[in-house]
Nucleic acid binder design. Structure first.
Lengths: 340, 340
DNA sequence: AATTAGCACTCGTTAGATAAGAGTGCTAAC
DNA sequence: GTTAGCACTCTTATCTAACGAGTGCTAATT
């Protein structure tokens, strides 16, 4: 469909625009080493490329700018394998060489490193606690009527909730309840906990514990209400360095949506296995339609548990970013695998 | 020093500027109900106020704008007691009527409510874990050589760290260690934990546990390294709504410093008991010198444990904000007191 | 037949000029 | 002591002209 010359010109336009954020003119293209044609020839090809929708003008006599279709084609067909510098590789692997190993910790550091390396904004969706299994459940009394419930998973993740113990539940009953639960529910996937609590265990517990319904109700309330989204955002200010975001209203609308952790978490969750690139309007969240979002998933025991993403202008360094995400998600998967 | 008329005019200028963000002219002041003088008279007084440094011109024939000295005088001498609307009061007290009581939870909600009510950015420094006491210490094994250490305080705060257990420590020793620690260290202030661990307990533990040094070393590493700052920021995008921040570079520099949690935490910690107002250059952090920061502290058992703050333009609604902070910090203190 | 040089044309950007308007300082009158 | 009046200053908005980067088209060249 596209001639080799058109491919070359499209590639040059996008590469150049990614660097400069300025419309590219025929003269500038002609001057590039790999291009051997005169500006006039290039103008003809550019007119064709524009007709096909791969590039656009900002006004009638301006140079050309990639369209979203252009970026899409570039990402799908023109991406050259990018060789990460050994410095970059080292910085990333350093994240995984720390001694105190913990999901949250690794994830947070990864977010920071990723945003520092790219000057984009990194978003990491932490492991879904639901897909891990229960290691231990504990209730620790703070005073006569308050306590904190702690849930530890096999991945070292800790969830906790404080709650007030209603007068009608006896402390000894709560103790018994927890003992039984630990015995019965150890290594059960978190996602099944609620169901198991209700269905299988109610009858058993009934024998030992009085007023089991209320107790379970409170336990559920304590443990499952308001699961936090587990989202880490790094380098959020980087977006303001991009020339396409020197308009405060654009930054404001983007930042407002970034504050809504549940919205962002849902966006990331909607991308499964592998690397995904959403360019501009391809993003469903309206406020992100001036941006590109690149996501990669990481896994634990073969099960995909989280997402690493980078948010930047449509004019992103796709090649480098994809390589970085690839490396990082692989390393995360490897590291977490070792822990089980 | 200042005549009543000058006080009145200064008050009107600042009140008006806080609302409009526009320089105030003599004509506008004269039109105010409470002012009975002609523009010419007011111009004379304004010239005097300017000479004394309370107000400034933006250019030679502009209206006047409060100087930082003016704001300082306003805050110190002209602040009228502000009557919060009952709606505001209700919104705040609702934060404390939730059932699931927990420091983090209350603090986070407070930050959100505060920024929503004011349209400024709220910053809350969570309770210093050091000033609370240990309730329980736990080690939960994840696998043969990894575990998570959990520390619960009397305030329902939970700290946790994952760590790898070195080969030279026996699991049974770790168990014994924890048992002894729980027995001996219950209700000890967290801040003293490290010291007590090292000095008083080493000898006792020595009898029961082999290679106690290594074990303690690892425990300390797991518990005390990298204490997170415990900082909650709400409504960070609100700053962009202020006309003085429609320059992207200003927003960027401010946001960059807001990302450095340790810097912000130190700033807040530097203000003790009561309400403090830092206006513009009075802020030590350079990036905040276009802003005003108002802080209030809250206490637990008579001990000040955290700080609530609002960051906005110098042109802040000081009166309302101070009332809100007062109410909120009092409520926090009361609520937390009840929990002990 | 493909490529390129040449040229008229378009449009955004910048600089300067002008006018309007808001506000001041000062003087003289009240 | 207060105020009306007026000349003056400075900002802002609008307009115009010149400039330049880049295009599209045509005709010449390879």
């Amino acid at each position: 469909m596209l001639s080799n010359r058109q491919l070359l010109i499209l590639q040059v336009i996008i590469d150049e625009f990614i660097q400069t954020a300025q419309p590219i003119g025929s003269r500038a293209i002609s001057k590039k080493q790999e291009v051997t044609y005169s500006p006039a020839t290039i103008r003809n090809e550019m007119a064709d490329l524009e007709e096909m929708g791969y590039i656009e003008k900002t006004h009638s006599s301006s140079g050309r700018v990639p369209s979203e279709k252009g970026y899409r084609f570039y990402v799908d067909h023109l991406l050259l394998p990018f060789h990460l510098s050994s410095a970059d590789k080292k910085i990333i692997s350093n994240v995984f060489n720390e001694d105190l190993v913990e999901f949250e910790h690794v994830v947070q550091n990864s977010a920071k490193v990723l945003s520092d390396l790219t000057n984009y904004t990194s978003i990491i969706l932490g492991p879904k606690v639901f897909e891990t299994t229960l290691k231990q459940l504990q209730i620790i009394h703070l005073s006569s009527n308050t306590a904190v419930a702690i849930l530890v998973t096999n991945t070292g993740h800790v969830e906790h909730r404080s709650f007030t113990i209603p007068a009608e539940i006896r402390a000894s009953d709560l103790e018994k309840l927890i003992n039984i639960l630990n015995e019965k529910l150890s290594d059960v996937p978190i996602i099944q906990l609620q169901e198991r609590l209700q269905k299988e265990l109610a009858s058993i517990l009934d024998k030992y514990v009085s007023d089991v319904d209320t107790a379970i109700q409170y336990l559920k309330g304590a443990l499952f209400e308001q699961q936090p989204a587990n989202l880490y955002i790094g380098g959020i200010t980087n977006i303001m360095l991009q020339p396409e975001f020197n308009d405060i209203t654009k930054v404001h609308s983007l930042y407002s949506v970034m504050e809504k952790e549940d919205v962002i978490a849902n966006v990331l969750r909607s991308y499964q296995d592998g690397i995904h690139v959403a360019i501009g309007q391809e993003n469903k969240v309206h406020e992100m339609q001036e941006c590109s979002l690149i996501t990669a998933t990481y896994s634990l025991a073969g099960e995909q548990v989280g997402t690493v993403a980078l948010l930047g202008p449509k004019r992103m360094e796709y090649s480098r970013v994809i390589s970085l995400l690839n490396l990082l998600s692989t390393q995360m998967t490897n590291t977490f695998h070792r822990w089980i």
